[in-house]
Design a protein around this nucleic acid. Sequence first.
DNA 1: CGCCTATTTGATCTGATTCAAACAATGTGG
DNA 2: CCACATTGTTTGAATCAGATCAAATAGGCG
Lengths: 245, 245
Amino acid sequence: MDARDTFQSPLVRKLESIFALSPDERSAVSALNGTVRQFGPGEDVVVEGDRPSACCLILEGWGCRYKVTGVGKRQILSFHLPGDVPDLQSLHLRVMDHSLAMLVASRVAFIAHSAIRDLIRHHPRIGDAFWRDTLIDAAVFREWMLGLGRRDARQRLCHLFCELFVRLDALGMVDEYAFGLPLTQAELADALGITPVHINRTLQDLRGEGLIELRRGRVELRDWDGLKAIGEFDDAYLHLRKVPA
Amino acid sequence: MDARDTFQSPLVRKLESIFALSPDERSAVSALNGTVRQFGPGEDVVVEGDRPSACCLILEGWGCRYKVTGVGKRQILSFHLPGDVPDLQSLHLRVMDHSLAMLVASRVAFIAHSAIRDLIRHHPRIGDAFWRDTLIDAAVFREWMLGLGRRDARQRLCHLFCELFVRLDALGMVDEYAFGLPLTQAELADALGITPVHINRTLQDLRGEGLIELRRGRVELRDWDGLKAIGEFDDAYLHLRKVPA
DNA sequence: CGCCTATTTGATCTGATTCAAACAATGTGG
DNA sequence: CCACATTGTTTGAATCAGATCAAATAGGCG
């Protein structure tokens, strides 16, 4: 496995989760090239108002997209994991309407729009997969909107834990029902549209009821069915490709 | 202007607002065919769980997409106007993760996925325009998420009025600063993630401050700058193509 | 140890919900 | 043309989930 394979494998895996790449397509994706940069926790990658000429592929780490109100209140819009291209939309929307930051020390690759456009032109199915990916993105936004508008703090937290579990599981990043959660309570608050203080209290409730175990950046879902029921979690909105058992 | 022109003109206009169609592309779009159906107020067009084989083009009327929690709380995700294809995402996401309903008596055309796919195959720029359209959709979701998570009732209302004004204006559906608003207070509530009662009270405040005039399905924005300031409205997220004055 | 950041706790306040009922507007059928 | 049903708006009072403010505690780390 040379440097290039390492470089592109998260993207190949991501696309493979959408449809089976032909050898031809696979080598075209592997031929993609870009600059790799390292980011520290909390560091911005792209910010609102930018006009990027490249897309970001997360190779390692966690990121989030967010917007901020006039008085500085932040709303996290989504979390992103290795293999994600969080600003794929910049391919067709010139100016960023939101920002992207990394949450932990991360490596991200910048792939020029021109390279992606070329890839899509010669491999339309890959273009469709990218389109589909942005559509799933929107589907997750919709589910979060339902939560932000119509669910209480307790439900939002349970729902988020379920979502993260399912996504991390698909990447092989869980251990039984436990996984690393590199989010501060303030970040959880910004994602769920509530206050850090209230997150803290709600978290204590969930712990007290034996639904989760949470300490030092690691969660364990101790009662999957309970969490699922409280959060009304149904993974349909993630539009995962079902692999027959 | 024959029946077919009438049929497709909202879509042509929509696409023209994204980029200038070539004569060839224009005739291809005009050649699209579909069944037209009439819907009454509140009637569902597609519902969560469906696996549509066609997309809906709104010819006349207003629609909205929504999701519902387990206990029946509804969150409206977006409003849709003539020329919109609210479920374009069904082209790539098999099963609907939300529903689409019309808010007033409306005419909608169903265009088979196969026809759209053919169109895109032969006219890639139209495919890009469709993709772009779904990306703008997502951009609006993001802005709404910021509102749902981080703005109060007053700001949400002002923001929504501004957004609707701008969108309706682009369709020539406003008269000065007034426009028809076929939404009940309950529907406004479902869109903004608050209670009908509280919508009512907030509306009265806005009226009392001379920001809006609202009666019998018609709003007048009496203080555009005030509404814009309160709602922190900036139309960048709508990604309108700027036409030089 | 001392610094910095994150979590926790307490007390108080408030924007928004809930419940309930009155009121207005529109439409229907007799 | 009116009685009546239906749907939407408005009002009032009580309550609550979550916000706010402030300070204490706990961890991680050079």
